[in-house]
Design a protein around this nucleic acid. Sequence first.
DNA 1: TTTAGCACTCCTTCTCGTCGAGTGCTAAGC
DNA 2: GCTTAGCACTCGACGAGAAGGAGTGCTAAA
Lengths: 349, 349
Amino acid sequence: MELTERKKQILKVVVEDYISTAEPVGSKAIAEQLSSKVSSATIRNELADLVELGYLEQPHTSAGRVPSPKGYRLYVNELMDHKGVSEEDAAQINATLAEPMAQAEQVIAKAGQMVSSFVGYPSYAVADHKSAAVVQRFELIPVDETSFIAVAMLSDKRVKSQLLHTQLPISAEKLPEMSHLLNTHFTGINVEQMNGRLMNLSDQVDGQWFLLLNQVVEYVGDLLTEANHQQVFTNGTSRLLQFPEFHDVDKAHNLMSFMVDNKENLPMPQGESPVQILIGPENVNEALKESSVVIASYDIGDNMRGLVGVVGPTRMDYATVAARLSYFADSLSRMFGKQELPPKEETKE
Amino acid sequence: MELTERKKQILKVVVEDYISTAEPVGSKAIAEQLSSKVSSATIRNELADLVELGYLEQPHTSAGRVPSPKGYRLYVNELMDHKGVSEEDAAQINATLAEPMAQAEQVIAKAGQMVSSFVGYPSYAVADHKSAAVVQRFELIPVDETSFIAVAMLSDKRVKSQLLHTQLPISAEKLPEMSHLLNTHFTGINVEQMNGRLMNLSDQVDGQWFLLLNQVVEYVGDLLTEANHQQVFTNGTSRLLQFPEFHDVDKAHNLMSFMVDNKENLPMPQGESPVQILIGPENVNEALKESSVVIASYDIGDNMRGLVGVVGPTRMDYATVAARLSYFADSLSRMFGKQELPPKEETKE
DNA sequence: TTTAGCACTCCTTCTCGTCGAGTGCTAAGC
DNA sequence: GCTTAGCACTCGACGAGAAGGAGTGCTAAA
């Protein structure tokens, strides 16, 4: 069942040729590119076998060959040269990453943008929370008679705050007490539990202050729900239009609107391998059955992973995309690894 | 120079027909739709005049007529029926707006999305700050030996906070003092002035505490810079593909990537009129010369206006888009008008 | 097993003819 | 003087062939 070495070489040439030209590849062209000198007729015999075995397809009888998903899969698994990134590429990535990035949240969005422009395909980015965020600490700051600021420090080190208004005037003295109450009863638990505890307190706490607690709990409830909800950012979808396979406007529109409106259904990495490749029909989702996806993940803080995916035609430049994506993900992980250290004097290597 | 009533009627029919079919309009079709009974021959004479006057164009000698930008302009200014929105449309807008919207910032982004799906064209949305935001109040909250939370209340009522780390241990007692210092010296001024004051304090404040102030000022500096920087959100760019004028992939790609990568150059409303329409070459920007833009603005809080624009082919359904956009903008303004009132018992109208 | 040779297939491109929508012009009518 | 019927004319759209060519599969010989 294992292919002969020559068949593999031929398959490799077909895939790489087709990736760069988007045109079916003929026996003559293959013969010219193949290291071992054989005639096009021999190649034709081999090609016929490869079609029979399902690695190649023929658009019509007198056309050249095109890789099938199975062919791409074999290419990706065994045949592909695992490129490194060129010096210029590395320089470009490093330059982009050099810009200071403030909040972990923004990093995700930014990463997607960078990847898209760097690999030349549309991309998407998601933050993957290893565990659900909870509130670690509350603080209430009086502002004026009927308003105060609620500050919540989340378990993922993010700090969120919001100005809230009360219906009745409040006395600044009582706010610390309320903070204390929140800190003792409402930290480290999820939204449902919070609501439960709030109910329990309803007869122990005076009406107006109960309302205030209610407001705060509602606010952080929204916060946590939002924080734990995976937000997906897509970028550069219009890049699809540059590929001949998407010159059919309907196809392009389908995939583009899928990427924008059904972001949540874009594939997420399974298992542990650093870079994953999903080819054509390997995608569960109907809209992606004629496209391929390359996914990588990176660490960002202790409780979060960033995921970034690249979408393109099955005729995607897997070698380059995978190389760049994994270099990019590694760089990001390294960057955040560094940041975790207590900030010290800058040291040069 | 003023057109006869009949010419105007003919122009109106041509524009509306062309808007709905995207096909050049012939004299016979016009004759059928015109209220006054005239023959197609008469219409042809009129059409010839309208071409001569520059209101219509002819793709080729034996084709029907297509409105020129000048023709669209006259249509928009004088001929267009100013529709209201239908009951269903109003219901849909109200339903979308009923969803609770938390932060003023998110409203902008959300508004763009809503508008795009509601009018069926791509849209963009911007927050327009009437005056630059400044910090109104600082608060520092101790967390542990080497970290604290900086809270800043901005003049536009937003509250921002961030966890900051110090290099040396800090004593919680001294933080209120620092807060006070920040509140007395660093409120109500812009970033440059802040940096100036910080310099002045450099010899009055002990080294480690100066570093802390420095961190806080740097943080709010970024905050204000970002807040005052107009961020543009684009939405639904892929909707362009549904229009025949963008079946040419290059055109589509041009405009789409312009909307995504050059957001800042999308037109902003001038003057006071509630809804503005820019037709084809009236757009300053080269990439928009063959497209039209409809812009509206709405009030959102006291220091901010939201702007939302719709982009489409010159053959845009101006009447519907303008009607929906202005209804939408009004609804949003009203919604925020309400919110400004101190929250009371809900009252039904 | 490889290869040259050759007939064959089928896509692409071009041309040509037809069709029809729509025009512009002329001349007659109101 | 405006309107209209009539008609020749223009020009794109569409389809049918014809030509060209890339590439194949098969056969038979090396």
